[in-house]
Simulated scan of single mutants.
Amino acid sequence: MIRVLLADDEAMIRAGVSAILAGSGETEVVAEAADGREAVRLAQAHRPDVALLDIRMPRLDGLAAAEEIVRTVPGTAVAMLTTFSEQAYVARALSGGATGFLLKSGDPYELIAGVRAVAGGGAFLSPKVARYVVDSGRRDSDRLDRETAARARVAELSPREREVLALVGTGLSNPEIAARLHLVEGTVKAYVSAVLDRLGVRNRVQAAIVAYEAGLVHPQG
């Protein structure tokens, strides 16, 4: 059972998300918070598998709360749940250590899949967020430059490393990749470390973005 801390200042949102997660049969909401400071305190007290945080909350916003939880509760994965997908929010959330970014307007399956992915050590971007990250805010020439650079970086990987990167991009955890590729988990862990090192990225989310930009994974929505 995946233990989840849910933080949102709207009680109806918390009720709806809790119902979706409970209905999955995979998750248990062990604590709820209405502001960022309470979320940090409850994360430290309950040490859940996943902290699912709204971005705009009183006292301490979700972005700052995410950074504090990542710093003080390293065993807890953080995913952001929001109606907002502006570039600044996405960039800060990911740079602050969040490994998931989910939209409240997304399909309930995305919520369940995202929580499952980050709990298992994977990364998950809502398809709309993934498309935004890849295509946002810059001129077409800039986007093409990024795509060309990503393809060049990926071309330096071995076929197996590219295969692993593509699966990282879909949000799979190491055990799930191992099962998909019929490898032992330790081998997959070594491949993921090698891929991060060769791509020059810090974490699985950044690797996933490279996978999207290189065309290994195709955002939908």
Rank of each mutant, 00 (worst) to 15 (best):
V133Q: 03
S85M: 13
V129C: 12
V210Y: 05
S85R: 09
T83S: 15
T72E: 13
S105M: 15
L81N: 03
V73D: 06
D145S: 15
A208L: 13
A166Q: 03
A150L: 12
Q220D: 05
L172K: 02
V168W: 01
S105H: 13
A130V: 11
E32T: 11
E163F: 06
L144N: 13
E28F: 10
D140K: 12
A119Q: 03
I112L: 11
S85I: 11
I209D: 04
G215I: 11
Y109K: 15
I55H: 03
D9I: 10
A214Q: 07
A77W: 03
T83F: 15
S141M: 12
T170K: 01
R143Q: 13
L63G: 05
L157N: 02
I112T: 10
T148D: 09
V78I: 04
E147K: 13
F101P: 00
R162V: 09
E26N: 08
Y89R: 01
N174Y: 00
D49R: 01
A66T: 12
R131Y: 14
V217Y: 08
L103I: 13
S105L: 14
A91T: 14
A77D: 08
L111F: 05
S141H: 10
G120L: 00
E28W: 09
L94C: 10
L42A: 09
A91F: 12
G215M: 08
R153T: 08
T72M: 11
I13S: 09
K104H: 09
E213Q: 14
G171L: 08
D61W: 08
A119V: 10
R143A: 12
S105K: 10
D61H: 08
S105Q: 14
E163V: 04
A179E: 02
D142C: 06
P127E: 02
